[in-house]
Design a protein around this nucleic acid. Sequence first.
DNA 1: TTGTACGCGTTATCAA
DNA 2: TTGATAACGCGTACAA
Lengths: 332, 332
Amino acid sequence: MNVTIKDVARIAGVSYSTVSKALNNSPLVTQKTKQKVLAVASQLGYQPNLNAKSLVSRSSHVIGVIWPTVEEQAFSSLITIVNEELKQHAYSMVLSINSLDDAVTIFNQYRLAGILAFCEREWSSSVDLLPSSAPLLYYGNASRLGHHTINVDRKQAIFDAVSYLHGIGHNRIAYIGDLSRTPEEAQLDKYRGYMNAVIHYGLQTHPGMAISVNDFSWDEGYSAAKKLLASDYDPTAVICASYELTSGVIRAIKESGYRIPENISVVSYDNIPQQEQLEPAITAVGAPVYLTAQWIVETILDLISDSDTSPVPQKHIVIPSVLTIRASSSAP
Amino acid sequence: MNVTIKDVARIAGVSYSTVSKALNNSPLVTQKTKQKVLAVASQLGYQPNLNAKSLVSRSSHVIGVIWPTVEEQAFSSLITIVNEELKQHAYSMVLSINSLDDAVTIFNQYRLAGILAFCEREWSSSVDLLPSSAPLLYYGNASRLGHHTINVDRKQAIFDAVSYLHGIGHNRIAYIGDLSRTPEEAQLDKYRGYMNAVIHYGLQTHPGMAISVNDFSWDEGYSAAKKLLASDYDPTAVICASYELTSGVIRAIKESGYRIPENISVVSYDNIPQQEQLEPAITAVGAPVYLTAQWIVETILDLISDSDTSPVPQKHIVIPSVLTIRASSSAP
DNA sequence: TTGTACGCGTTATCAA
DNA sequence: TTGATAACGCGTACAA
């Protein structure tokens, strides 16, 4: 326990600076001594002290991710993939589920290489004051803040969904999502995309064409779909604002004796592989999660290497939506 | 950026050891200089370097939590509460979603104060080899390993559910859970509790009294309940192995025209507050999540303070189940 | 009450 | 090619 390079040096019979070189693949050491040092190190169970390491190098190869809404599943697959991607680039990832402020504080104190903030809803007002030594990249709807941001284009995504459905002949296209008086920015974007498209294509309108949900559980999707089918709107297609909603919606549609897509087409927001597993496989729009993860990782790593050169230009990246057509949609 | 105590000392016109004392509430400094130092520190935006701090103190006030199955929501409320509890004790929490080995490795390298492993299913075989300098506490089914463990009593929980239902007059009590040939240990425990109780109380048995699910989604619960109701078992009560399953089960029961609890009682595993929000509020068994979180925090903090004194006795804590009666159950 | 000096484990710069 | 030595930022005896 707590064996240091000095211990390794003593056993291996070399100086500890030589050990350091051997451990770091320095060319300033012979293969032979290197082998010996490595052998002793692993035999002693040597584990480098990252505190010392990042104290001297003033940084580490660790990215801190802030994820205050751990109970929302929406980000979990994205975060999983980001983690894998970072590992490929020899970075580690560490999560905090504290508030933005608390998390930034502790990450800063550890002098992490970079910080990634996944916060779709709440933005601490004091965050602008926090002097972050590490590059801070926000994922979500934060273009207004004076920080680097990366976003998915939700408005375009839903617009594309309507375009696609209209293109194959649908005219009564319903929407199930968050229409509350004060929806989060992200949800408002989706609704805007829907309304814009409805107007743009001159679709039939109806008071009951857009159904609001209280949260994004399957249960709410189920209830909303029941309500939709009970109205006299008689939609030929429905667009759902999330994967979970969709899973409830298709259950409700099936139970009401309708078939997908023969009687009604379903298109879901959230371009994640899991859509493939639903029955039937669901046509989806939104930024593909793999692509999003890759962009996030690439951007944060760029910011880290850029951070030497000042001034750093502000980055605001928007990931386009992709339409993935599956079995749940067809011409009416 | 990167202002150190030396900078603070220079501006405040004192030596940097005085600054250190002032920052750490040492009694060896006058209130006046302390105030001055604190003022200068905050004005300069001083942020302590935790790397240096834990390098010199050989530890930090940070607990690392290993959570490889981030996509399973089961732990999320527990982890949220653990986080809050730790904050109360002036500890920070940091998560890793890597494999057990990878996570332990990096946490060790950062010399964190303690490690908490939330891994219900997979146990890396090599984990025993990892020399962890920090106390490692496992949550899950790991009593076989040579490590400290903390667990909930799932077998007792389900047994209690049957006892309760039998006590108020039920004789045909169904079970919906994971009965696959090779279930995880945790799920097997639940089923054992059920079977033990069925035998113990001499309940009516039937081939279709226990329905197996493939995963713990609401969807599987829904399908299982439909199957159960279609059989000729005619249960007066049903026990579900998880919260998500239950949410699907009650939907299926309602749709089949039955009322809860008049026609059929429902008891769910997972003693979490969310059970209260279902319609009707669900009677639940299992270790209350708040209690579990408190035990976890208390145990890991104990282990940390014990770790000075060697040898440390091995701790294996089992948290008892509690029956929380709500509207979903009544005499048949 | 305040300041000085040393060490924590590591990397990097020199001399040897 | 190796080894001694000075940082990195901080806590803490010990001296003033």
